[in-house]
Design a protein around this nucleic acid. Structure first.
Lengths: 236, 236
DNA sequence: AAAGCCAGTTGACCCAGATCAATTTTGGAG
DNA sequence: CTCCAAAATTGATCTGGGTCAACTGGCTTT
């Protein structure tokens, strides 16, 4: 997959940014935002392109502005675990070792706001509120990661799939509003690698749920016909 | 398990603290440390006691000073996932919701340095270096959490056990020095709940490794007879 | 030292989900 | 539209690890 990276003229303004309110930048005031604008540059990636890879030296941080990304780790023999899906507003790339600790690629077209590591580090340096915001995002992610450990270690295939649908729907609420129609831009393989299952099991589980009238498999997603039933299956 | 909490007279000094160099407090200078001393109070817990529970309103943060703790989440039907083991120097209790997102109890006798949430929050308020340190710890933990997701979702029982032994040994290096003798203060059930296995599978796997001359099961732990073999089994 | 009690081990059997193997459906490209 | 390739579904079979059950070996208690 060749990286066809388009760099736009940097006329994009933070104040017009779609993720202004939810992203790291929500902690910045008007004056700071001006300065911040010059730090980031908008970069586009097309479907399937890799934004950064595990073990790469970290040269940039990324703020996802548009689209969906899969974050994953690979074992040497090719087994893959997707550790999360990123949505607009998510901040990616923070680490303590100087190297990325997972890979990230675009699911469909993606726009990110890219920050070179050093200037971003300098900008953050004495801005307590921005650091606090980043810390808050890290803690929130840590919490999600722990929830996902429970899913991976202690839930059945049915529970995993049901929990995934609900969790994904929930994450979309703040972006597209609440709805029983859940778009699934990622492939079945992606879902399988996120849930610690095989593609066949994911497919069979969807089909089973549909046969039971709990969901309907639609183009590019699923529709929750009986959300209460799905919640019961997820067995929180 | 009734909480027999002993509160010592607060003559304990941070400067004498065993975890002074590795814990959050490593970011504090001499003057700050004096003030910090008055914020925390040493509390002891005996084996099996719960320090805090998931969903409890967070009133305190904890710095583990001595002993080992298990951090876990429960499903309503009693299934348990241990999301981590805490060792001296680990900082526990940070969250964004105001409630703990996992439970923590003592494995063997434990000493913690307990900080009331509000004063600690005030102390942190304008101390960039302390916040940075906390952020660093959170990011490090997030990284660990992601590694553990790979283990839970994509590794076989043998790989899980081998990776656990190596990972645990590695964590002990900074505390007790490098050694092929790995103490395991936690029960087989704890190990199983950490690895997403049953107690029987953990036991069988240990026995198998011993039969193959890779490890030796000793009282209170295991000994790595062939560390290279264990590493090969872990299949990084 | 006997009794009781857990934690751990071991064995026999089973099943959820993996694997292997075809189809079928979908989405582009020409 | 037709053709092709990738994604998804479905079926048949297998197996790693779970479940159930018995046993063992330390500790504690008396």
């Amino acid at each position: 997959m060749k990286p066809v990276v388009t760099i736009e003229p940097n006329w994009q303004l933070c104040s017009d940014c779609a993720v202004r309110a939810s992203a790291v930048c929500s902690s910045l005031d008007g004056i700071e935002l001006r300065e911040f604008e010059h730090l980031g540059r908008r970069v586009h990636f097309s479907s399937g392109e890799t934004v950064f890879s595990e073990e790469d030296i970290t040269t940039s941080f990324y703020n996802l502005v548009e689209g969906v990304m899969r974050l994953y780790k690979l074992l040497t023999d090719g087994r893959r675990q997707i550790v999360g899906f990123a949505l607009p507003g998510d901040f990616l790339g923070m680490n303590v070792s100087g190297r990325h600790n997972f890979s990230a690629d675009a699911i469909g077209a993606v726009t990110v706001c890219q920050f070179a590591k050093a200037p971003f580090g300098r900008f953050i340096e004495d801005r307590l509120h921005l650091l606090r915001r980043i810390n808050e995002l890290a803690i929130r992610e840590l919490n999600q990661a722990r929830d996902h450990m429970v899913l991976l270690g202690r839930r059945s295939a049915d529970e995993k799939v049901a929990a995934f649908l609900l969790g994904w729907r929930e994450r979309l609420v703040s972006l597209t509003g609440a709805s029983d129609t859940v778009p699934l831009p990622m492939s079945r393989q992606d879902i399988a690698d996120y849930l610690g299952l095989t593609i066949e099991t994911v497919s069979r589980t969807f089909t089973k749920l549909e046969r039971h009238g709990v969901i309907e498999i639609i183009h590019g997603g699923i529709s929750l016909l009986d959300p209460a039933k799905v919640e019961a299956l997820a067995a929180a």
